[in-house]
Amino acid sequence: MSDLSNTPTAITCLTQGEVILYPTEAVYGLGCDPDNQQAVEALLAIKQRPVEKGLILIADNYGQLLKYVDDAKIPMDKRADIFSSWPAAITWVMPASKNTPKWLTGQFDTIAVRVTNHPTVKRLCQEFGKPLVSTSANLTGQETVISIDQAKAQFTEQVGFYVDEALGGNTQPSTIKDAMTGKIFRG
């Protein structure tokens, strides 16, 4: 029997402030602990993405997102649209909690959040006990990587762990909608 105690896992890497690569509904994503500023800054550096743009959080359930969302500001008449759309590849831009760090919201007073139905991401969020930062695995403005081999060639040692599991089968990244107005930012 081999000793796997020193074998890194995605959860170990997340806990240690590293960036991981994992499958989402349509594309591979780069993710990290949303509460670890150094991890988020490392992810932004890998992606060459300015902090001002803000980031998406992906979760197993809405309860994992409550720390980051100002739930009281979401009108009752909007809740049915939001909660009936999940779990799915629909990201909602919601009012951010006053305690949500600017390294997540960027220049905005909102936070983009998604409750996923992808089994791998659900498992990662359950095991980690909170949401992950989720952004497409590419350099800003370039095509998203389409395989683990391509990801390893592009990101090499910058990524602490590569979760080599299947994509969710969607052909487009998640739809992004404004929770307050219903406006579609990405369809």
Rank of each mutant, 00 (worst) to 15 (best):
D60F: 09
T100R: 00
G182R: 08
A179S: 10
Q150V: 09
V133K: 01
E18R: 15
A59M: 03
V159K: 13
T24Q: 03
A45L: 10
M180I: 14
V40D: 01
N61V: 08
R79S: 00
A96Y: 04
I58W: 05
S5C: 13
E165P: 00
V27C: 13
W103L: 00
G63M: 06
Q126W: 03
F155W: 10
P101T: 02
R49A: 08
V19T: 10
L4A: 14
P87A: 11
P34D: 12
K177G: 09
A45I: 04
N99S: 14
P95V: 04
K98S: 12
Q154I: 07
V113A: 01
E127I: 07
L124N: 04
I148R: 01
K47N: 12
T156Q: 07
Q48D: 05
L4F: 14
T181Q: 08
V93N: 14
T12P: 00
L132A: 03
G160W: 04
A88N: 15
Q16K: 12
K47W: 13
N170K: 11
K73G: 01
F155G: 07
L104H: 04
G169C: 14
E25W: 05
P95Q: 06
K152Q: 15
K122W: 04
S174Y: 03
S97W: 07
Y162W: 06
T120S: 13
V121E: 06
L66H: 01
A72R: 02
T15I: 13
L43A: 06
M180V: 12
K122E: 00
K130V: 02
I184N: 12
T144A: 15
S147C: 14
Q64K: 07
P75L: 10
M180W: 11
V40C: 02
Q37L: 04
S5K: 14
S147I: 11
A59I: 05
Q142C: 04
A26D: 06
H118P: 09
S5N: 04
I74P: 02
V133H: 04
S84H: 15
E41W: 11
V27Y: 07
S147W: 01
P8I: 14
K152D: 11
K177S: 03
Y162I: 06
T175G: 10
K78T: 00
K130D: 05
P34R: 10
T135D: 01
T171F: 10
I90A: 14
Q158M: 10
T120V: 15
F185W: 10
A88Q: 09
T12W: 04
D77M: 06
D71C: 01
P131H: 01
T144Q: 06
Q48K: 11
A59D: 13
Q64C: 02
L104N: 00
Q38T: 09
Q126N: 10
V115H: 07
A10R: 01
N61P: 03
I111H: 09
K177D: 11
E127Y: 10
G106T: 13
Q107I: 11
A59R: 06
P75R: 08
A166S: 12
E157S: 14
K183Q: 15
T140K: 06
S85W: 03
C13D: 11
P173L: 07
T12I: 13
